[in-house]
Design a protein around this nucleic acid. Sequence first.
RNA 1: GUGCCCGUAGCUCAAUCGGAUAGAGCACCAGCCUUCUAAGCUGGGGGUUGUGGGUUCGAUUCCCGCCGGGCACGCCA
Length: 548
Amino acid sequence: MSAEIKSHLTDLLTQSLALVAPQTPASIIALERPKQAAHGDWACNVAMQLAKQLKKNPRELAQALIAALPASPWLERAELAGPGFINLRLNPAAKLEAVRNVLAAGAGYGRGNAGKRRPILVEFVSANPTGPLHLGHGRQAALGDALCALLEAQDWKVTREFYYNDAGVQIDTLALSVQSRAREQRGEAVSFPETGYQGEYIREIAADYLAGKGDPGDLTAVRRFSVAALRREQDGDLAALGVKFDNYYLESSLYTDGKVEATVGALTASGKTYEQDGALWLRTTEYGDDKDRVMKKSDGSYTYFVPDVAYHVTKWQRGFTHAVNIQGSDHHGTVARVRAGLQALNTVTAAGIPLGYPDYVIHKMVTVMKAGEEVKLSKRAGSYVTARDLIDEVGRDAVRFFLVSRKADTEFVFDIDLAKSQTEDNPVYYVQYAHARICSVLAQWGANAQTLGSASLAALTLPRELALAQRLGEFPEILAEAALAFAPHAVAFYLRELAGEFHSYYNAERVLVADEPLKLARLALILAVRQVLQNGLALLGVSAPEKM
RNA sequence: GUGCCCGUAGCUCAAUCGGAUAGAGCACCAGCCUUCUAAGCUGGGGGUUGUGGGUUCGAUUCCCGCCGGGCACGCCA
């Protein structure tokens, strides 16, 4: 495995360092993949790192380290370069190791064990049940689900959770909006609530309610019906995206279970609260927030902040010593508050919740462009691009791949016209096409692909073949780093590159050649490429079609 | 005004805990299908990484100032 080769090279350098500079800890040795092929397969900058403290010339130091390197079956040569880099070049056998490993591990290739079977809770989407999911939610769903898959591949025990805000004022607004539309449809003269939701879907819910012989005067019934309808709607949106949650946590349950009361009690006992203007405040500024927060309003009700803290306490109490929240940047203000609330609780409950708990992935908004103009995502105004609309237009694979292929903290411009009119230019097809091409070649060969696992790879000598093999070897590192950084976009970029190298190879060389050993070796290589494409696409929730 | 985030090719975006000559795609230009899928390939032009300093062998990356954009600054969620 590539990881084995990397640790092997590290080991060689460690031995060399022990001879050249015995006092130096080996932990300083770091290997990286150079951007340029001319700089070898791996590069080490240890000589430059040590030059100052050893008071030696970095190039001389590097030369000494190279001279002291033990012999190795994988290493072709080591050379001094630039200001003091040690560039390591692998022999073909070392590069082809990856192909063997991919075929041996199959769908499990790329997995790591950083999670060590520990539980982690990932909360995402958590949309209010007051409308269908829009593209911002779509981005969060694609991001969150891919992140969960990545964490699972690193051996974390992942729970996907959706926090359901079913207890707030927005639900009242929803009920009043639907009630008003229902009365309107009955021919009554009513004034629509000023802050009500304007969307067409409100009218539809009202019509459905009336069709079911519902009484517009019964606000409780209207509310129950509306929430249920929108929950079904959101479930449908998520299903269309292919995202499934393990658990829905209801905000209302925090009240009925007494957890909100308990949290307020504990926070009061912590001595971090005070009363002012008839309200109860928490000194969140003691924990890095920029102003203190009201917990209990002067009318006796709680602010949303309290159930939010209570909810996160349950995460910890449920055994999730690791938790990640995926949120839009419009809610980034809650980060300091929630963490502050948890830290204040620590002082009385001795729960020992760590300072940075929970982790956050903050993503920026999705700007939607249509006909060269920005479409505002406003529920109230009613102009509304839903996740479902987009899936219907460009397909689930494209939507998911596209939404996950950018860093979370960059703003996302989704041009609907571009996505509609130029679906062929979407990168997802490029990657899927590589997969389909490989399937086609294997089908024409016709024999059992299982046998390729033991094929000799010695015939693979072209630079393109070795580069492709080496690219396969990077996959486990890409996944490990992407999981660690909560950055699924790295997987999308990797797949784009792998597919690109495959397409070039496919165009330049023929796989089904007369030379039998060469044919089998090339088949083994492309079979391994197909496996990695499959594994990568699966992580992103994108299909790997056999035909296109 | 204060806090957080972002600023990289015409456009959309990358850049491995500070690494070597900052990379892809789209668009544009010129080529490649009697041969395994042309949703593909090959080649080309495109940059003072917003800006000014600092840190050091070395900065897109770290620190400070400024400019521009987004978001948040409720006893709303």
